[in-house]
């Protein structure tokens, strides 16, 4: 019996490694013509994985439903952009034209996390 639990335990460890660190989730595309609303609720950005066109300015609209102070700021560290997000209101964050690459965005504590893939 104990060996079954051990195998299940190690399988769980493998699943955690794959699910959180190895898996590449699908990305939601955004273009200049199709602005995107990113919802902040229950500890996550929805969507959190976003694809942007390279070398084009893009506006992302954040809608914060979570009153917890964790969700208060959205920070794009590589772009030196930080914006305070009001509760139950949308806030537009304008991004400059970006070269190809991955750009993280997150809250102050990095509990809310998302990634822009510029391609």
């Amino acid at each position: 019996m104990i060996w079954v639990i051990n195998i299940v335990g190690f399988l769980l460890v493998a699943v955690i490694v794959w699910w959180f660190w190895l898996y590449k989730p699908a990305r939601t595309a955004v273009t200049k013509e199709k602005p995107l609303v990113i919802l902040l609720e229950n500890g996550v950005y929805q969507p959190a994985h976003i694809q942007l066109p390279a070398n084009q300015p893009v506006a992302l609209e954040f809608f914060r439903k979570d009153a917890s102070p964790c969700a208060e700021m959205v920070i794009f560290p590589a772009l030196d952009i930080s914006e305070e997000l009001p509760v139950n209101k949308s806030k537009t964050v304008r991004l400059p034209p970006l070269p190809v690459g991955n750009y993280e965005f997150h809250c102050q504590m990095r509990m809310y996390r998302g990634e822009l893939t510029v391609a």
């Binding site: 699910w19 959180f20 989730p25 609720e41 229950n42 500890g43 996550v44 959190a48 917890s68 509990m111």
Partner: peptide, 19 residues
């Protein structure tokens, strides 16, 4: 409730947090 919903949503989102 907010911990469980947040925990579940972040799990589904391939991220994990305090919740």
């Amino acid at each position: 409730r907010h911990f469980y919903i947040g925990g579940w949503k972040s799990l589904r989102n391939h991220s994990a947090n305090m919740d």
